[in-house]
């Protein structure tokens, strides 16, 4: 293995156009090894195209990218043997069973037949697919399909895994299974490049986040930095007895360590909260102190608000990038 130090991904001024439109337009990024790197952006921001460029499926019009120290154009084969891709559309065969898909993936990664079967069995167990393994894939639920898909990309543990919107369209339980898999991958030493439209997902999984919009990175940082810039979640409270306002303010200040603000227009107190679960506790304490709360809301900033805060403009959604990327 060569060049085991240095960044996992280094992209400089990447450009890729489809017709007159530039899906990726001067993208720069630097992904350190051993982390989950979240590529966060709306539909059509250039996430899928970026993944296709970095996984050697598409060739950049200009700019360079090195993946694990290898140039994605000149040394595409070296890149391919050390990365894996789970695309947005299913990359497994609908007309094969789950187990057959895994055996095929193993054979193509150089396993001999017996070893390929054993590897498929291991993956089926670890991914909780034992019951589904011998059914045809087209009978699978979305979550099962996604797990087989990921399992097929990690037949040999890749140094770098591209996960293109792995949880879009999944129910919460299946989503948390995918998150478990991603965390286990990182513990096993794999770098994960994860694209998502979901701020919460990036926050939960990623060590670093790049906000991408219009084919370029518009902001980057740790989830904490991004959230801070986006504004923290806010707890808003209405009081049954407005005269108890000062009591409530004092209690909230003790509880959260920050001052709350009073909005005379709505008659509500609002206080920024970093940990949403403490909001419930604060409400309980208020009622214990005899301050009755008539209503409350707690909001996380949305992806759109994060964009607005970091870039000063809202997301600029363009036509479906995925469609064009498949051409």
């Amino acid at each position: 293995m060569t060049s085991d130090s240095g960044p996992a991904i280094e992209a400089v001024d990447l450009v890729k156009g489809f017709g007159s439109r530039r899906a990726v337009d001067g993208l720069n990024m630097n992904v350190p090894r051993g982390v989950v790197y979240g590529l966060l952006g709306p539909n059509g921001a250039g996430k899928t195209t970026t993944v296709r460029l970095l996984s050697t499926l598409a060739r950049p019009d200009s700019g360079t990218a090195r993946v694990l120290g290898h140039d994605v154009v000149a040394e595409a084969d070296s890149v391919r043997s050390r990365v894996s891709l789970t695309g947005q559309s299913t990359t497994v065969d609908e007309e094969l069973t789950g187990r057959e898909n895994l055996v095929l993936a193993a054979l193509l990664r150089g396993f001999r037949r017996g070893a390929a079967r054993r590897r498929a069995d291991q993956l089926v167990e670890a991914f909780d697919l034992a019951d589904a393994a011998d059914r045809l894939l087209r009978t699978y639920s979305g979550g099962e399909k996604r797990r087989i898909d990921i399992a097929a990309s990690i037949v040999t543990t890749p140094d770098l895994l591209f996960l293109d919107e792995p949880t879009t369209g999944l129910d919460p339980r299946s989503r948390s299974q995918v998150w478990d898999i991603v965390r286990a991958m990182v513990e096993a030493g794999t770098t994960v490049l994860l694209t998502t439209q979901n701020l919460e997902e990036a926050d939960r999984l990623a060590h670093f986040i790049a906000l991408i919009d219009g084919g370029r990175v518009v902001a980057k940082g740790t989830p904490a930095e991004i959230k801070e810039a986006a504004g923290e979640a806010t707890l808003r409270l209405g009081l049954r007895d407005p005269l108890r306002r000062e009591d409530a303010e004092a209690l909230l200040a003790r509880h959260f360590g920050v001052d709350s603000t009073w909005d005379p227009g709505t008659g509500r107190l609002s206080v920024p909260i970093s940990e949403p679960d403490r909001a419930a506790l604060a409400i309980t304490e208020l009622s214990r102190a005899g301050v009755e709360v008539s209503e409350f809301t707690a909001d996380q900033p949305s992806l759109d608000e994060a964009f607005l805060a970091m870039t000063g403009h809202r997301t600029t959604t363009v036509g479906s990038e995925e469609e064009e990327a498949l051409r």
């Binding site: 043997s81 054979l107 193509l108 990664r109 150089g110 396993f111 001999r112 070893a115 590897r119 291991q122 993956l123 167990e125 670890a126 991914f127 909780d128 979550g143 990690i154 037949v155 040999t156 543990t157 129910d171 339980r173 299946s174 948390s176 299974q177 478990d180 898999i181 965390r183 286990a184 991958m185 513990e187 096993a188 030493g189 794999t190």
Partner: peptide, 22 residues
């Protein structure tokens, strides 16, 4: 939908052999 067993997941990831390419 069951919770996945993290330790068996990790085992399957770390224990994987890397055969030479097909």
């Amino acid at each position: 939908v069951n919770d996945l067993d993290r330790s068996s997941l990790r085992e399957v990831l770390i224990g994987s052999e890397r055969p030479s390419r097909a």
